[in-house]
Amino acid sequence: MNLFCLGLNHETAPLEVREKFSIPMEHLGQRSYQLTTLDGVREAVVISTCNRMEVYVAAEDDKLSDAESSVKKNLGFEVNDTAHFYNCRSVEAMKHLCRVVSGLDSMVLGETEIFGQVKKAYQYALEATATGGVLNKVFQKSFGVGKKVRTETTIQNGQTSVGSVALDLAEKIFSDLKDSTVMVIGAGEMSRITVQSMVLRGVKKVYVTNRSHDKAVALANEVGGEAVRFNDWSKVLATVDVVISSTGSTEPVVRASDIEAVRKKRKYRPLFMIDIAVPRDIEHGVGEIEEVYLYDLDTLQKQVDEGHARRKAQVRECEKIIDAEVLKIANQQNNHV
């Protein structure tokens, strides 16, 4: 019995190709089972996420090529798709699965979501009786390797998006965001993404303000907040802990005098201000006020870059663990995989 992997991902295929081969989560078990009915295929697991579609197949040694052809045909593989697909066999397929599970093959290096997605896909295949002795062992071992990589390296340390860096900083200042109030100035996409991550952490209250009030109302409804007219945002400033500003204004929207005016009313509590607008919305002088912590897009992006660099520096360590573990597994199975 041998193992092969056939797949495409965000690096090998553009979105339209990935869309073509994408399989809804609820059909993964059924599709895995379908593959096991093909000539030469004994076991199969289909993984499909927004960034990849992969098929892991266990087939008889002498029918490996036939199995591969029938799987391709079944997936709707055409000649022009060849360039987008990769395939690997035996130990290399196992290594590839370990890399995927560990987040080394992900668009965001070291992300953890993929671990759960692969586990779910395997669970569906298992429930559909599409797996057997070979793939059960391969997947379970790969989950063990994935866990080892995450515990023994710092591959998941360091934030990789502006929103998550802002969230981390907010939690460094206010510990529990459940007691914090956030104000969003400008209802654009960046604001939406950043405030949503804070809403997920359970912030107490969100105010949204925008020059076009309708947009403020729309975003407020989306995040369960309250819209405030653009002329009135300074009235709620005294009650907020975090300000996220991202308007298209060419002039500063928040000036040091706005903050000075409410300092006493705020009892000089810390205020975290995130300026993700270009040009900047918050006047530079605001950051010089003692209890204000002002972070602009460049500062946040720098930390994102550092996070990426820190993760990249860990890749070699992760690969070493994967190589050693796969070698151990291969030896245990006497090269049957």
Binding site: E171, K172, I173, F174, S175, P270
Partner: peptide
């Protein structure tokens, strides 16, 4: 040092 520090309000 920054990472090991407890949150500011704590």
């Amino acid at each position: 040092l920054f990472k090991k520090m407890p949150p500011l309000d704590t």
